[in-house]
Simulated scan of single mutants.
Amino acid sequence: MRLILLFAVFAILGLAFESAGARIFSFRALIPNLIIILAVDLGLRHHGVLPAILAFAMGYATDALAGSHPGLNAFMTTMVFLVSYEISTRLMVANAGVGVTVVFFGVIATALGTVAIANGIGSLSSTGPMLPSLTLQAFITALIAPFVFSILATFKRLIGLPDGTARDPHSRAR
């Protein structure tokens, strides 16, 4: 229940920031994708059915606020979670560097996957003009990811949740 509440609060704050940021900044690439950061944290540090459901719910909440194709963000966020989960099961340590890398590629994969699913695979050949702004958004999101991971870790400790996978001896709750 604590995990649900923590990620619900952070998802609401993240969606509010992204929605408000779209009104403040005219250049969308300057707004980080906070939901992807949350999905990566769930995938790297929390295993089981509940984190997968939380990733889907965060994506679905994104669809409810800004999705032009219902379920598309839910699908892509769940895919980012699953990739993060797989990476964490293959590595002995799921540190911030791994998280930053997964966030960077997760933002790019989410955007390109959304375009491919919504408009067809053939539409990917016309994504050239969007790649610079997409790369900038992925870079900005990856840049703030360690800070978000740190804030999440602090709140997890405060409410008594473990901060990492059982395989990572440095991240177990003490």
Rank of each mutant, 00 (worst) to 15 (best):
A20N: 06
L131Q: 01
K156S: 10
A94Y: 06
A66V: 06
F81H: 03
I24H: 11
G67T: 04
T62L: 14
G67H: 01
D41C: 12
A11R: 06
T62K: 09
D63H: 00
T89N: 09
V49F: 12
M58T: 00
L124Q: 08
A20E: 12
A138I: 14
L161K: 05
S123V: 05
A109W: 05
G120R: 04
F155K: 00
R28G: 00
M76A: 11
G97T: 01
I53G: 08
L30I: 08
F27A: 13
D63E: 05
L158A: 15
N119E: 15
L112G: 09
D63K: 00
A29S: 14
E86V: 14
R157S: 10
T114Y: 08
H170R: 08
A145G: 04
I87Y: 06
M130K: 00
A116E: 09
G67Q: 02
Y60C: 04
V93Y: 07
S150L: 13
T62C: 05
A166N: 09
G120D: 06
P70G: 08
I140M: 10
A39S: 08
A16Q: 02
V83G: 02
H46Y: 15
A16G: 09
V9G: 12
S19D: 09
A57W: 00
L30G: 04
V83D: 03
D163Q: 12
V40M: 06
V93A: 07
A57V: 08
S171A: 13
T62R: 10
M1F: 14
A29Y: 13
T141A: 12
T77V: 13
T62N: 09
F155H: 05
G67I: 04
I121L: 15
V102Q: 02
I31F: 06
A8L: 15
S150V: 03
F104W: 11
G120Q: 01
I121A: 15
L15C: 04
R2F: 11
